[in-house]
Nucleic acid binder design. Structure first.
Ligand SMILES: [Mn+2]
Ligand SMILES: [Mn+2]
Ligand SMILES: [Mn+2]
Ligand SMILES: [Mn+2]
Lengths: 220, 220
DNA sequence: ATATTTTTTTAGACCAGTCTAAACTTTTAT
DNA sequence: ATAAAAGTTTAGACTGGTCTAAAAAAATAT
């Protein structure tokens, strides 16, 4: 059984590796977890000793199959709890991330199964992020970063990065939430801000905002 | 803010002190928490340093007002979560204690308020134990241990100690659950077992079972 | 009243997780 | 090709929580 801390490291590495594929560097992990590189090196050794990651000194870590599966189970719990908090307890979508950060560590497979059933097997959390099923399968809607789309792009908002409450409050205020139609009208060369149409309302989004919005891609 | 471990100690001491009044001995705490007396002494020093308990060397500890209030807040969380698990997630009453033991440590006052509202401000948990309100007030129904009642006693089952799942399964099977009417017909001198009438059904309860059942007392 | 038993505390060690400072590798610049 | 800079690991220390073994105090028995 993993400790609270081990679980947080594993999840951070998984996210930094973009689904567990890319190699992840010590300093990236340190920054994400607000800790120091020396601490990360220690934990890396422990997690690779338990075969959740593979580690090549000075060149970072990669997740193993086992590591990915463990990370996905934590992410599943996190997103189910976020859904519960918004749908059943009437929390705002910007208030749930930190609480889910704690709840994701509760140990009880039965609890998660029952929670899933209670919520009617949701496919996505309140921020649009997909909820892995009990076997770690993720229903991935093809998506890309809004900031990287070309002029004239048309699609809809799939998800939003959820760790910053002020961003979520702002997006909620201007109406840029998952599911909404979005069109890219213009890119400002000077500050890379975007002019977009969200459900027929014209909006201007700064670069840091656009980087945290994921939009649908039609695979063809 | 208290650590996970500090919270567990504080709750254990509160229960051993029967509502925070009686003095509690080092070994009692050690036994309840499955730890060693030496560890308890260390923690006692820490908690008394933070003014949650007052400590007289070799003579045990007493809870302070601050300590009681903190313990009651943890107990409130524990019992609200148990209620949630049974009422909303369809758990059996014998499955919830260990999960609530984890959930009680989640830090978010707003979460508990919202959970309380979602459950419609329940007065008692699934085992009949009263749920303290947000100010730590406990609605105490006058009660006593079934094992200590005199022959001919009539009343109803108020609550049941919840930490042993096999006891709960058994009580559920024989129909001795909170709310049920109960009458004490006979005491067997040899093994102190009781013959009782639960909702007009005759049952025999052994001493250890009767000691874990709380029954109503009419204050007169 | 003294000796024995029981309970509690202290001393010293260990593990998980963290940190700073120093040493070592790799990358980048010249 | 060499020097400087950046990133990573190691060494050693610290905290919170735990343990065993030994010392000290309190309760009990004679
Ligand atoms: Mn989240
Ligand atoms: Mn977390
Ligand atoms: Mn309980
Ligand atoms: Mn607990």
């Amino acid at each position: 059984m993993l400790s609270y801390t081990e679980e947080n490291y594993l999840k951070a590495i998984y996210h930094l590796a973009q689904g567990g594929t890319k190699a992840v560097l010590t300093n990236e992990i340190a920054e994400m977890l607000n800790t120091k590189a020396a601490s990360v090196t220690d934990m890396i050794k422990k997690l690779s000793g338990k075969n959740f990651i593979s580690y090549e000194k000075y060149y970072g870590v990669k997740m193993t199959r086992q590591g990915k599966s463990e990370a996905l189970s934590i992410i599943r719990k996190h997103r189910l709890w976020e859904t519960f908090l918004v749908q059943k307890l009437q929390f705002n979508w910007d208030e749930v991330h930190d609480i889910a950060e704690q709840l994701e560590h509760i140990q009880s497979p039965l609890l998660i199964e029952k929670l899933d059933a209670f919520l009617n097997y949701p496919k996505a959390d309140p921020h649009g992020e997909p909820i892995p099923d009990r076997n770690g399968k993720v229903q991935v809607q093809a998506h890309g970063c809004l900031h990287e789309q070309t002029l004239g792009y048309k699609g809809c908002i799939v998800a939003v990065k959820d760790s910053d409450a002020t961003l979520l409050k702002y997006l909620n205020k201007i109406g840029a939430t998952p599911g909404k139609k979005i069109e890219l009208l213009n890119k400002e060369a000077y500050d890379e801000s975007l002019e977009v149409l969200v459900e027929n309302k014209k909006l201007s989004l700064s670069k840091p905002v656009a980087q945290n919005i994921l939009v649908s891609l039609t695979t063809r």
